[in-house]
């Protein structure tokens, strides 16, 4: 073949600054969530005279924030198109080990708390390693098995006993205030900031999104998919242990059957927050708002003493509402 003409390149420049679009900005999913939150607060205020005051709003957070810590790593996991249904069992196992370490082995409480965190992280690590080593099995299968296993171990350790009588200061986690702000709220905000930065401002977070959209392409692009997954699952275990500490502190004791079905609540909150289980989508701020929506809704309806079966229906309907609204094309909310 005889070379004839070489097509000259058409020189072009590309935009590198994203133009600010008010329309796009205000059509974000998180705004809708924020409106729902305002709606929930307004509804609660109109229903109960006890709802809208600082101490009520403040103390409510102590009620619902314990499991919210797991929502963050769960969001990361769901963005990676995985799921972890063993977190509830991890909460139980890590708290049981902590209590046994303190009560039966004579470990000082401070060290027992550290042990709790380590056990949680180890549970998560094991999930992560199994998922990475056995890629042909999905995370659902593996965490379903470890869910039964972890709780089983908790039962073996503590049998039918409750273990408690923690030192006085341990109660501070679940019940304490710092300058009038619940300690749990402070830690929650801190965790939200940390996870928000991790997800949105670091290379690690960018990798998580990349894996969620296309794990093969991520691997070919030099993203260490396995390591990222293991770390995120370990984080989930670690945060489950944090929840375990708060829960044990609030109850002053622990038992193998605590935190039953927490995983479903956590997944529901993450989904409401705009994290799609189809992977790659969602922002952390959405999950934070979702935590408060669900929490305040339950708390507020509790203040007018709605039966818990009604609450079940309300939460289920809210979850459906949240996933159906974006499918309506009329206001195009970007999830």
């Amino acid at each position: 073949m005889e070379p004839k003409t070489i097509q000259p390149y058409t020189q072009r420049t590309l935009e590198a600054d994203r133009p600010f679009s008010a329309k796009q900005f205000f059509l974000q999913w998180e705004w809708l969530l924020a409106f729902i939150l305002i709606g929930v607060i307004a509804l609660n205020t109109s229903l109960s005279p006890y709802f809208l005051n600082i101490s009520s709003l403040r103390d409510a957070t102590m009620v619902f924030l314990d499991k919210a810590f797991i929502v963050f790593p769960m969001a990361l996991i769901m963005i990676m198109r995985d799921i972890d249904i063993s977190v509830g069992s991890t909460v139980a196992l890590s708290s049981v080990v902590m209590a046994v370490a303190y009560n039966s082995l004579g470990v000082p409480m401070g060290a027992a708390v550290v042990i709790c965190l380590i056990v949680g992280a180890l549970c998560g690590l094991m999930n992560g390693l199994l998922i990475v080593k056995f890629k042909e099995l999905s995370a659902v299968i593996i965490t379903l098995a470890t869910m039964i296993l972890y709780r089983g171990i908790a039962y073996i350790i503590l049998e039918d006993q409750a273990s408690g009588s923690f030192p006085e200061w341990f109660g501070f986690f679940g019940w304490g205030y710092v300058y009038g702000i619940p300690f749990i709220l402070i830690l929650f905000i801190l965790a939200a900031l940390l996870f928000g930065l991790l997800l949105h401002k670091t290379t690690f977070g960018r990798h998580i999104y990349a894996i969620g959209h296309n794990d093969v392409a991520s691997r070919f692009s030099g993203v260490n998919v396995d390591r990222t997954k293991v770390i995120v699952f370990t984080l989930a275990g670690l945060m489950a242990a944090v929840t375990a500490i708060f829960l044990a502190s609030r109850m002053g004791s622990t038992r193998p059957n605590i935190a039953n079905m927490y995983e479903l609540d956590v997944i529901a909150m993450a989904a409401l927050g705009g994290i799609s289980t189809a992977g790659g989508k969602g922002r952390l701020i959405g999950t934070v708002i979702a935590v408060f929506i669900v929490g305040y809704l339950q708390y507020g309806l509790g203040l007018i003493n709605i039966p818990s079966q009604t609450l079940l229906i309300v939460v289920g309907a809210l979850l459906l509402f949240a996933v159906i609204v974006p499918k309506l094309n009329i206001p195009r909310f970007k999830k």
Binding site: T310, I313, G316, L319, L320, V323, I324, K327
Partner: peptide, 22 residues
């Protein structure tokens, strides 16, 4: 509506259970 099965059934689980109690 293209709702993901895990979410749809999670929500309906709550709703049906609530109906049962009611």
């Amino acid at each position: 509506l293209g709702v993901l099965p895990i979410i749809a059934t999670l929500a309906m689980m709550n709703i049906y259970r609530g109906f049962t109690y009611m």
